[in-house]
Design a binder for these strands. Structure first.
Lengths: 122, 122
DNA sequence: ATATCACTTAGAGTTTACTTCAAGTCAATA
DNA sequence: TATTGACTTGAAGTAAACTCTAAGTGATAT
């Protein structure tokens, strides 16, 4: 699978895919004689994971580190678990903050819908 | 209330508070003769709102625009409602993406807890 | 009196995550 | 054969949101 197809499938740009590769988040992707990247099913899976985590706001640096640990083999299991738990905590806090803002937006939109012209900003 | 107290209460830095003010998200905060900011209850409420929305990832530019509209009075109600709905949509999409990543993290941590050493990254 | 501390300003610097640029290769089509 | 289009590279540029610096003021503690 070529870079443009992968980019399209995941809603990323080809530049972003090459950037992720440079940063060690994916690949290195094997290239044909002409130097063109050919993405395997394994590569695609990795991209799917990276995309999911990035969409949730997890940092490139965390992903890099986690992947490095993963490649370090079984002896890194403990540390891997620890950083996943840490990221989960951060994510949970963000989720809660977002839920709160979401509720607040809903409430305010509801007031607009009921034509209640609140003199308060929010 | 002085800037450092406000900063402490909201877990922001004084620099950030002054930055928000420069950007027109809050204030202008009235100052004493010595030039020192004195935050009123109204100011605090505004900061609370800004903090809530920023924590959810809403952009400074959106907040700026919404606040400008608000200060434009009743004739801006329609547009205000529209941009709130737009932001709610964006927020909902982010929430869903984060929930997915959260579930995935949970699943993986669960595997680690059960000592299932998965050969897959995620 | 002098030092300390919190505050003030304008403006420069930093971080994160891309994004764009310039220059070039290669295969296919007009 | 010439041009089009997708790919390649390293490096420079950008946007958003802070964050820090330098220089200064003014009230209070020693």
């Amino acid at each position: 699978m070529q870079i443009s197809e992968v980019a399209k499938e995941f809603g990323l740009t080809t530049d972003t895919l090459r950037y992720y590769e440079r940063e060690g988040l994916i690949g290195p992707i094997t290239k044909g004689k002409n130097g063109i990247r050919n993405y395997t099913e394994e590569d695609i899976k990795r991209i799917q994971f990276v995309k999911c985590m990035r969409s949730a706001g997890l940092e490139i640096n965390f992903l890099k580190r986690y992947i490095q640990l993963f490649e370090g083999g079984d002896k890194t299991v403990k540390e891997r678990r620890e950083i996943l738990v840490e990221q989960r905590k951060i994510l949970k806090e963000k989720l809660d903050a977002m839920q709160e803002a979401y509720n607040r937006l809903n409430y305010k939109i509801d007031l607009y819908d009921k034509n209640i012209l609140d003199k308060n900003l929010m």
